[in-house]
Simulated scan of single mutants.
Amino acid sequence: MNPNRPLSKKKKITNFILCILFIIFAVIQLNDPDSLLWFSIYFIVAIICLYNSFKPIPKPLLIIILVALLIYSAFHFSLFIDYLNTENKEEIFGEMVYDKPYLEGTREFIGLLIAAFGILYQLRIWKNNNK
């Protein structure tokens, strides 16, 4: 991001909304057994969205975070496929069922993809500000 070229008001508002959403996602994770991990993932993405509105984040750091999110999501991909092969798709909105690990794996897979899209948006801002 060109430090001499500030973000547009629209991009700052979008980043602020993303920041709030990822903070909400982080807080929702606090009742999870692995809450520290998921709170950290969502909270870091929230901070990146907010910080990038005021000061540029280096592109290599954004790429590293994006790749890490995608690699971690790949570990949940088979569970997501298992979920797609089930008949009762509404189960994903219910309680965790220990004999159906694909439910939690699918939720985690989708959450990681949402976080990756948040970082991808930051990369898009970086690219557009360096034209």
Rank of each mutant, 00 (worst) to 15 (best):
G105M: 02
P33E: 08
C49P: 03
P33R: 01
Y51A: 09
S73H: 04
V67C: 06
I114E: 03
F43C: 07
L50W: 11
N85E: 11
N52M: 08
I13W: 15
Q122K: 08
V27S: 05
E95P: 04
N15C: 06
N4V: 07
K100G: 06
Y121T: 07
L103K: 05
F39M: 04
I47G: 09
S8H: 06
L50R: 03
N2M: 13
M96P: 01
V97H: 01
A46E: 08
K10A: 15
I92L: 15
G94V: 03
N52R: 10
I20R: 06
L84Q: 10
K131G: 13
V27A: 04
L123I: 11
G105I: 03
P33M: 05
L21F: 12
E108H: 12
I110E: 01
D32M: 07
K55S: 08
L69V: 04
G94H: 08
K127P: 01
N4K: 10
L69G: 06
I28A: 10
I92A: 12
A116D: 02
A68N: 06
L50I: 08
I13Y: 13
S73R: 12
P56T: 06
L69W: 05
P3S: 14
Y51M: 13
P58D: 13
F25P: 00
Y51S: 05
I125L: 12
M1R: 15
L62S: 08
D32A: 00
R107C: 04
F39N: 01
L103F: 01
Q122L: 15
K11F: 11
T106C: 08
P6M: 09
K100M: 14
N129F: 12
N2G: 09
N15M: 10
I41M: 01
K12M: 15
I57K: 00
F117I: 12
A68M: 13
E87A: 08
K89G: 00
K10S: 13
A26S: 12
P3A: 14
M96G: 10
K131V: 14
W126L: 00
I24S: 07
I119F: 12
F117H: 01
D32G: 01
Y42N: 11
I57W: 03
G111S: 10
I65K: 00
